[in-house]
Design a protein around this nucleic acid. Structure first.
Length: 859
RNA sequence: GGGCGCAUAGCUCAGCUGGUAGAGCGACACCCUUACAAGGUGUUGGUCGGGGGUUCGAGUCCCUCUGCGCCCACCA
């Protein structure tokens, strides 16, 4: 037992106790525990591409609160953390930080030094470096960022078992990710296909449906005339993308549209400017009310074009290349003028090409009127800067129900195996799964990621055989097909006819992070561990990534294990600006976690997080943190006060009805908190504990402190024992929320960590009359009010308190008389029987004038 | 267009299975009271978004309208 400080303080307790917990292994997972004694948590590995913000602090605290509660109930808590460092986010950060870009065609340079380390000047043009050099920089920078992340999360007091740390690019994660992929491949759940895909022209990679978002941007309708080949005039269409005119493959109208009926019998038109002959077709997706009711189909302007192209068996005439620029070769344009015109477009970006085409149309007179500007939603990659294009390319997919109704239904049903907190979050999951319109595209044409672990045989003409990829043995994972060689081949055979070639792509980050339960549980590496933690008890995450992380994890678990990955999903809300708008970036940069920790203390910030209901979007409220700090300070001070009485003699019992009443109320709180926590409603537990705590400090302690001071008689001992019992329970009830403060005060009088102490139960708590204190303290409130209204100190003497009360509460009042007289400095108390409760207070300093209502304070 | 959530005191929110409106913050007044002045005591403040219904009784259940937010779809 350490000594109680003269002036208790919160300063420095974070560093002190973090260090102690680390040294003691306070949060180490005990893997000897059987599955039913384990509580396993699947935590979000934060993306290491910037800094942790207040939103992380918020949601990570919620998980930690539950972890700490579970640990105190005796569970062995499996609570790992990882860093999500692979992927595009890291690449982008590396590019910006060092002023470089990756060019796989460049050779490795030994001892390469980047031109900058942070903040390259704005006019700096990124220098091209080899893929291995680029990956080295990624590894350097993420290692550096991860140290900062770890420091912040430790300061936040998250009770991770740091020995379980993983990073999504490390060997174990790459092996796990590749193993899961190969299993998917072997069972036919992963497949490769050459097809139109959403494509970001800046990052030059395919992206998945889940990573796409709409943005409202400016555009314009252009009315353009196509010419009927039968000489019967023009067909006018409306388009926002006139630059795709050279890739037009058909016109389309609704089958029932009377205006175009005559054209459905095999009529053809020629495209303006380029003179390409295309058919006029009917399809139900054409909307008669849009534009002129007839549209041009291009390969590809949008996803509807893809549908039309597929369902109407149209040719492919792509003009936008993977870098977003117009291709050079357009063999389908045979018209001489058309070819000349197109030659001017080759190599241009979409935007430039549009400008030029519009100019050409004006000149040729084939545009009717001027463009009509509109604002319309356009699809963007969520991290991208230019609209997505649709480009045909070979990609890897994992079946996720987007193309198979039965599978979709199975995955929706997996949602029923999970208990959602709050329950309505399941709708978002169901809604997303039912709205899928394609399989999960997992390959990315990027560099810092887990390689797709396959090779392809090359035929005599060096064409890859994509239908039967060569796969590595699981024991050899992780592999990199660009440097490793498939079994049965020699390194010299790479890229030569009859030899092999490695798949050039990496998998998307989600393809790895969808395996966090398998990664953390060391699936197929440590079967004993995996059996003890999987399926996990709980997944914690924010609700905005239900469609990505939560769903993709469910897909992988469905295929590999035939089960939902967890029993509970706990969804946190978002952090909003104090004005309740979504937290802006600039704001987030100002209010960093470190600033808040320094200003209010970690426990105060955790208090704010812990008071937010699960799943509820919450405003950043610094005044709540002030309240949290006040609470922590109060806990220090009241602990000091109670412990200052010293330890009562062995065998001391709580005997006074007033003390038993307080304990009875506390018991009710304990039960409520336990029930709330069992339902993952940590916020209710905090609220109840806090409400009791302030009542305890302000009312109960004030009522009994004089008696407790008295020393060693039965009444004093009863008060001291009750105070200590309540304090012990309160420190444990607060422990999940205020881990540093509670550990500090616990250390003043207890052995071991409060975070390893048992969660309070009511079994051994004495029975008392909870209502008794309501009556007694009701009287005290009147006395206080009288003094306040008389503008005298609360220590002022009271000559008489005359109580009128129903007979059935007289006993309760009597039980409190002794404490009341001392707490209120009351000379005399009288009780009369009456139907209603009434309290009259006569201050000693007042001259009592009979009939003077001013001095009587009644109910 | 489909789905979900929210609407309670000036502000932030609680009010779980229907039983006479709650907390904190703020504001105001008072008190240097020996655990705590980064404290304490008290006061003020709401026809629970509008309308209708069920019920002895509705903030709470049902219908409807309005406003706000989020997700999804559409986006020639």
């Amino acid at each position: 037992m350490t000594t109680i400080p003269e002036k208790p303080s919160l300063d420095g307790i974070e560093a002190r106790w973090s260090q102690q917990w680390d040294a003691d292994g306070t949060y180490a997972f005990d893997r000897s525990a059987t599955r039913d004694q384990v509580f396993s948590i699947d935590t979000p590995p934060p993306t290491v591409s910037g800094s942790l913000h207040v939103g992380h602090v918020f949601s990570y605290t919620h998980t930690d609160i539950i972890a700490r509660y579970q640990r105190m109930t005796g569970k062995s808590v499996f609570y790992p953390i990882g860093w999500d460092d692979n992927g595009l986010a890291t690449e982008r950060r590396v590019q910006n930080f060092y002023g470089v870009r990756c060019d796989p065609s460049i050779a490795y340079e030994v001892g390469f030094e980047p031109p900058f380390r942070g903040d390259p000047p704005k006019d700096h043009r990124a220098i091209a470096i080899s893929r291995p050099n680029f990956i080295e920089l990624c590894e350097q920078l993420t290692a550096q960022d991860e140290e900062i992340f770890e420091a912040v999360l430790r300061q936040l007091g998250l009770s991770y078992d740091w020995s379980l740390l993983y990073t999504t690019i490390d060997d174990h994660c790459r092996a796990t990710s590749q193993r899961a992929f190969l299993r998917n491949l072997a069972r036919g759940e992963a497949y490769t296909r050459d097809a139109p895909t959403l494509w970001d022209v800046d990052y030059k990679t395919a992206v998945a449906q889940a990573e796409m978002e709409d943005r409202e941007i400016g555009g314009a309708y252009h009315q353009i005339a196509f010419h009927r080949t039968d000489g019967q005039g023009d067909v006018v269409i409306d388009t926002t993308r006139p630059e795709l005119l050279p890739s037009c493959v058909a016109l389309v109208a609704h089958p029932s549209d009377a205006r175009y009926q005559a054209l459905f019998d095999g009529a053809t038109v020629t495209t303006p400017l380029f003179g390409v002959e295309v058919p006029v077709l009917a399809h139900h997706l054409a909307d008669p009310d849009k534009g002129t009711g007839i549209a041009m189909i291009c390969t590809f302007g949008d996803t509807t074009d893809v549908t039309w192209w597929r369902e109407l068996n149209l040719p492919s005439r792509a003009v936008v290349a993977r870098d977003g620029r117009f291709v050079a070769d357009t063999p389908w344009i045979t018209d001489a003028d058309g070819s000349t015109r197109y030659a001017e477009l080759a190599g241009r970006s979409s935007k430039q090409a549009q400008k030029q085409i519009v100019e050409m149309l004006r000149t040729s007179g084939e545009m009717l009127g001027e463009p009509r500007p509109i604002q319309h939603p356009v699809k963007f990659y969520e991290r991208g800067e230019r609209p997505l294009e649709i480009v045909a390319s070979r990609q890897w997919y994992i079946r996720n129900g987007g193309r198979e109704p039965e599978l979709r239904a199975d995955l929706v049903a997996r949602g029923d195996e999970i208990t959602w907190h709050p329950a309505h979050m399941q709708h978002r999951y169901t809604n997303w799964v039912e709205g899928l319109n394609g399989d999960w595209l997992i390959s990315r044409q990027r560099f810092f990621g887990v390689p797709v672990p396959v090779w392809y045989r090359l035929d005599a003409d060096a064409n890859p055989d994509y239908d039967s990829p060569l796969v590595p043995a699981e024991a050899d994972l992780p592999i990199d097909p660009s440097t490793d060689v498939p079994a049965g081949f020699a390194a010299e055979q790479r890229g030569v006819p009859g030899g092999f070639v490695g798949d050039p792509d990496v998998m998307d980050t989600w393809a790895t992070s969808s395996l966090t339960p398998q990664i953390a549980g060391r699936w197929e590496v440590d079967d004993d561990l995996f059996q003890r933690v999987f399926p996990m008890d709980m997944r914690a995450q924010a609700h905005d990534i239900i469609r990505t992380w939560l769903f993709s994890t469910a897909v992988r678990s469905h295929w590999e294990h035939g089960t939902a990955p967890w029993r509970h999903a706990a969804l946190s809300g978002w952090i909003l600006d104090p004005d309740r708008k979504k937290m802006s970036k600039s704001k987030g940069n100002v209010v960093t976690p470190a600033t808040l920790f320094d200003q209010y203390g970690t426990d105060a910030v955790r208090y704010w997080s812990g008071s937010a209901r699960p799943g509820v979007d919450t405003a950043l409220a610094e005044d709540q943190m002030k309240v949290g700090r006040k609470l922590a300070m109060k806990l220090l001070n009241v602990s000091k006060f109670v412990l200052g009485f010293g330890e009562p003699a062995a065998g001391t019992e709580v005997t006074e009805p007033v003390d038993l009443s307080m304990l009875a109320r506390l018991a009710a709180v304990v039960d409520e908190c336990s029930t709330a926590f069992a339902g993952f409603d940590y916020a209710r537990s905090l609220e109840r504990t806090e409400a009791f705590f302030w009542w305890f400090c302000d009312d109960y302690v004030e009522l009994v402190k004089s008696r407790a001071y008295r020393g060693t008689d039965t009444g004093a001992a009863s008060a001291q024992q009750a105070l200590r019992g309540a304090l012990n329970t309160l420190q444990r009830l607060f422990a999940p929320f205020l881990p540093f403060t509670t550990e500090e005060v616990w250390s003043w009088w207890q052995q071991g960590s409060v975070h390893r102490a048992a969660w309070p139960t009511t079994a051994a708590m004495p029975n008392g009359d909870a209502a008794l204190l309501d009556v007694v303290l009701g009287v005290l409130a009147h006395v206080r009010r009288a003094k306040t209204e008389a503008k005298v100190t609360q220590r002022a003497e009271v000559a008489l308190v005359a109580i009128t009360a129903p007979a059935n509460v007289h006993a309760a009042l009597q039980a409190g008389f002794a404490d009341l007289t001392e707490a209120g400095s009351i000379a005399s108390i009288t009780v009369e029987t009456g139907d209603e409760m009434g309290v009259a207070v006569v201050l000693a300093t007042e001259t009592v004038i009979p009939g003077d209502a001013e001095t009587l304070h009644s109910l």
